[in-house]
Design a protein around this nucleic acid. Sequence first.
DNA 1: CAAAGTACTTTGTTTTGCAAAGTATAATAT
DNA 2: ATATTATACTTTGCAAAACAAAGTACTTTG
Lengths: 92, 92
Amino acid sequence: MFDPLLHQNIRSKLVSLLISNDELPFKALKETLGVTDGNLSSHLSKLEKEKYIAIEKTFEGKRPKTMVKIAPVGRKAFEAYIEALRAFIEEN
Amino acid sequence: MFDPLLHQNIRSKLVSLLISNDELPFKALKETLGVTDGNLSSHLSKLEKEKYIAIEKTFEGKRPKTMVKIAPVGRKAFEAYIEALRAFIEEN
DNA sequence: CAAAGTACTTTGTTTTGCAAAGTATAATAT
DNA sequence: ATATTATACTTTGCAAAACAAAGTACTTTG
């Protein structure tokens, strides 16, 4: 079974981005993924709930800034997911 | 965007099985995938609706037998999906 | 200081994914 | 002969997911 948290269009790319960039602001994720604020927000919540990512709320001057980081659990899960995909591809 | 019809746990495996075996009976799919009848039935309907597969209802003696075959659209889509996965893996 | 913008979150609706229940026929036991 | 169980599915109902629209809380700008 592919990890259902990762085997989804937006989340697989989201986590992939976080693996490559280690941390990214909400806005950058939103623009790169081409999703609405609400949609991104709920995907982030889902990933945070399972400790795949960590969300840090800071301030950039006076404006709120949400920083999203990959967490150890998420990194491991993603690696396993990529391995699973690789195995799936091999047999196809 | 990964093809949402294929980027799903059960359906990706289902179509993969059909690519390898060309045609399979309902029962074999059900057992191999480890899903309930209802669940399989609805996934098949979804794939059939988009012409990814073809469903043939025949009789084995006096009992109904549902045969599932991969269709050209499905084969192409699956190949493209595998390519997309490959590309995704490459960059991760 | 009103209007518009920024950075999100919450709410509401549609779509999925699934199991339980239903349908129809066949085989088997009584 | 007929009730019971089994086979092969499909339909229904419901909980969870995915998404956009609306809401919240500020802040900057005209």
